[in-house]
Design a binder for these strands. Sequence first.
DNA 1: AAATAGATTAGCT
DNA 2: GCTAATCTATTTA
Length: 205
Amino acid sequence: MRVPAHTGFADVPAEGVSLLEAVAARARELLGATLVADRDGMRVALRITEVEGYGGPHDPASHAYRGPSARNAAMFGPPWHAYVYRHMGLHTCFNVVVAVDGTPTGVLIRAGEIIDGVDHARRRRAARGATRRDTDLAAGPARLTVALGITLADTGAPLDGSSGLTLLPRTGAAPRTAVGPRIGVGKAADFPMRFWIDGDPTVSR
DNA sequence: AAATAGATTAGCT
DNA sequence: GCTAATCTATTTA
């Protein structure tokens, strides 16, 4: 993996680059996986179509870049748990913690297709703003959390179903995947760490 | 104690 | 496509 000098990853040591590769691999695995949220007796299932990797200590765009804090504590916890944070005051975003060799790395779930509980998702989204098309229900990290009913209280929760959140691995073959730079990231924006299912209508722009 | 940048969204042109 | 809204965590004095 070549690391362009202007991306902010320039000082990543060799083991850091392999760490980024590992995160990218985990992110790719999550494409096509299913996230099931059981909330208030309502089940909403999401087929993940867009993700972004965050490389912890070597990634200046990662929340874990500057070490542990009250906000990012969950990233330093066990893998396959949730890391939920608030952004821009009101928006809530959901990550899957992917500890690689004990380092705090994560994958931001940016978008997906609602495959079960569409009515519940639409109702939740309608309560916070207008939604025109079904493909927009979870087309964006904060939209996704609203559709699934995920809140800050879910941070640190396991994704094995014991807390109402279940992550099911993709079953079929790997989908056709597109790669690009991360979105809305000020630092290291040119580094391709964003993956989405090529041609899927539910990915954010 | 104060400043500031930010893993965004919705609404309008 | 472009901009306002909106507030928190982290950084700086």
